[in-house]
Amino acid sequence: MDLYGWIIYNGYLPGSKFRDFAEWVQRAAAKHHIRTTIYKNSELPGLLATGRVDLVSTGASKPDFVVFADKDIYLAKQLELMGIPVFNRAETIAASDDKITSYQLLAAHHLPVPKTVIAPKAFYNTGTDHVDDYHQAIQLLGFPMIVKEAFGSFGEQVYLVNTRKELAEKIRQLQGRSFMLQEFIAASFGKDKRLHVVGDEVVAAMTRHSANDFRSNVTAGGTMQAYHPTWEEAQLAVAAVKAIGADFAGVDLLVGPDDTPIICEINSNAHIRNLFDCTGINAADAMIDYIKREMRHDNGRLANLQQDRRRNK
């Protein structure tokens, strides 16, 4: 099967982390003799016209598939409308990126999540805290509690508040943004478990620990240790990924009372270098294996795409 793919990452983010992820996927594809091209999203502006959904210009043949290592859901959707299989799909990326949407889907699938209260939508910052609107939420969740913005990465938009006064100030700061309040899982202070799921399988896992922060993110100073998840944890992680329709994703599990796993969040664009450094397992290999299987199951569309590619050479 002669496959050609694109790997897309965000061209506007600082540092090399996202390019690095793309290169790991490209090297994994090369092992399977799959040719790929890495693009920044900024190199692929979408073009819409009457009866036309396309890209402005790439100077290259259209791919058989795309590994979408970005959150530019409009570009992902554009590619899907052009008939190109995208891993992960735009709808999945959007659900993962919006943590409120993630929790809604997880709860609807009867999966364990922290008790969560969604903040009423405010379309702009009123300059006041409106903490009285949260009286019932305070009674339900108690202090300390977690305040979490719907959109954020690396734990930077997650806050621990200990008093009504702290909550009032945080609400005032976040007015106009989407956020939620959550019960604080004390047993998981400074520790969680990252399970990387590809298809129906957990391919690698690690625990993350922080000595001085309730968050355990490695980018915030946490440490890692290779981990072998229990059957229950693995099944839960796979179910979580399926709940948002992902092909592959990183699932973060909190440690609940009596070591019961609770889903913290799902990352459809989970980076894999830290996972490799910790476990020695390159998740990109499993991702490419999965894509090959999925493309094989869709041979009719693949044949049409490859025929179009040869015609346009």
Rank of each mutant, 00 (worst) to 15 (best):
L254N: 08
K242S: 07
D277L: 06
V56H: 14
Y103E: 02
D70C: 10
Y134A: 06
T219F: 04
R172K: 15
K292E: 14
F65K: 04
Q225V: 03
N41Y: 11
Y103N: 04
G11L: 02
T92K: 10
M82K: 11
K242A: 11
G51W: 12
R310M: 09
I171G: 01
I8V: 15
N274V: 02
K40I: 01
S16L: 13
V241Q: 13
R89N: 06
T163G: 14
P63R: 09
A69C: 04
E294M: 12
T223A: 09
L106C: 06
I244G: 05
H228P: 00
A76E: 10
T92W: 15
N88Y: 08
F151C: 06
H196R: 05
G142K: 06
V255M: 14
M287A: 05
T36G: 11
P229Q: 12
A205D: 14
M295Y: 09
Q157H: 07
L111V: 00
E201R: 10
G222W: 09
N217A: 12
Q182I: 03
T128C: 00
I34Y: 08
L13E: 07
L106W: 04
L105M: 15
G256Y: 01
S178C: 03
E232T: 03
M295V: 07
K71E: 11
L140R: 06
D70A: 10
M295A: 10
D98E: 07
H228D: 10
A150E: 04
V113L: 07
M224A: 12
A29L: 02
L44M: 14
G221M: 15
K170W: 12
A284V: 03
K62T: 10
F21Y: 09
I38A: 01
D308F: 11
G142Y: 06
N10I: 00
T260V: 04
F248W: 04
T58S: 14
V53D: 11
L167V: 04
V197Y: 13
H271A: 11
L236N: 09
R273A: 14
Q26W: 02
R215C: 06
T116C: 04
H209M: 03
K193P: 03
D298E: 13
Q225N: 05
Q26M: 06
K17M: 08
L44I: 05
D97C: 01
I84T: 13
I291T: 05
L302A: 03
G222F: 08
P85M: 08
A122C: 01
T279I: 04
D247R: 08
S268C: 13
